[in-house]
């Protein structure tokens, strides 16, 4: 699904590498946490998977495609197979919950009937049934993040990238979001989640990859946030 081989990413000439010879494989259907201090390279890793950033050296394969050799025009279709969620939700304030989710289908040219059929199902999946007519500012932070997740998965991506999705939420709300992500993962979607949330990681018992200054220092199949306890 995702395969990094000695991937190095240097943003500016002479700068310290944001990723330093990272090798990593994430198989289909896995739920994988990325942990590490601020600036350790978690977001960089996710942007590389999304093909927002080029790698400086090494090789990166995502969904069977070599990212360094992917031509520009193939990027949109490639991204349709990947969903992303961020700490700041990134919703459109003027659109309703339903419209925000439908937007992701409209802009890739999906037909109206498909939108009408799919969006309610997905809103149901993230626990927002009954709130489709609200606008983002009529929702709590947790609910907004659920909308963002619904939008990320409405096109049935094979991979979901989540960059600190609970960063702005209180612990109880975070657990709710985590439950939604687990549900998405159970539908067969591979989930990669960068997080600082110790509680969630410790409780979930999923694979944990820890980065320090751009290097993988720990990779445990069923780990804890801070390593062995």
């Amino acid at each position: 699904m995702i395969k990094f081989d000695n991937v190095t990413k240097i943003y500016a000439r002479g700068a310290r590498p944001a990723l330093d010879e990272v090798s990593l494989e994430v198989p289909r259907g896995e739920f994988c946490f990325l942990v590490g201090a601020s600036g350790s390279g978690k977001s960089t890793m996710l942007s590389i998977v999304l093909r927002e950033e080029h790698i400086t050296s090494g090789s990166a394969f995502v969904l069977g495609q070599d990212l360094s050799r992917m031509p520009q025009r193939r990027i949109p279709r490639f991204r349709r197979q990947i969903g992303s969620v961020f700490q700041d939700f990134r919703l459109l304030d003027r659109k309703t919950v339903f419209e925000n989710v439908a937007f992701a289908m409209q802009v890739i040219g999906r037909p109206r009937h498909a939108i009408m059929r799919t969006v309610p199902d997905v809103l149901d999946l993230v626990g927002l049934a009954g709130k489709e007519k609200r606008t983002p500012h009529e929702l709590s932070g947790g609910e907004q993040q659920r909308v963002a997740i619904a939008r990320a998965v409405v096109n049935r991506p094979q991979i979901l990238l989540a960059d600190e999705p609970t960063g702005n939420l209180d612990p109880r709300t975070s657990e709710g979001i985590m439950a939604v992500l687990e549900r998405v993962n159970q539908t067969g979607t591979t989930v990669v989640m960068a997080t600082h949330d110790v509680g969630l990681v410790d409780q979930a018992q999923h694979r944990v990859v820890e980065l320090v200054e751009g290097r993988v220092v720990r990779d445990e199949a069923s780990g804890y946030y801070g390593g062995d306890v």
Partner: peptide, 17 residues
């Protein structure tokens, strides 16, 4: 920018954006 950002993220084609 927010709209186009989301469009790019979910894989809308350049032409469409």
């Amino acid at each position: 920018q927010r709209e186009t950002g989301i469009m790019r993220l979910v894989g809308a084609s350049n032409l469409f954006i």
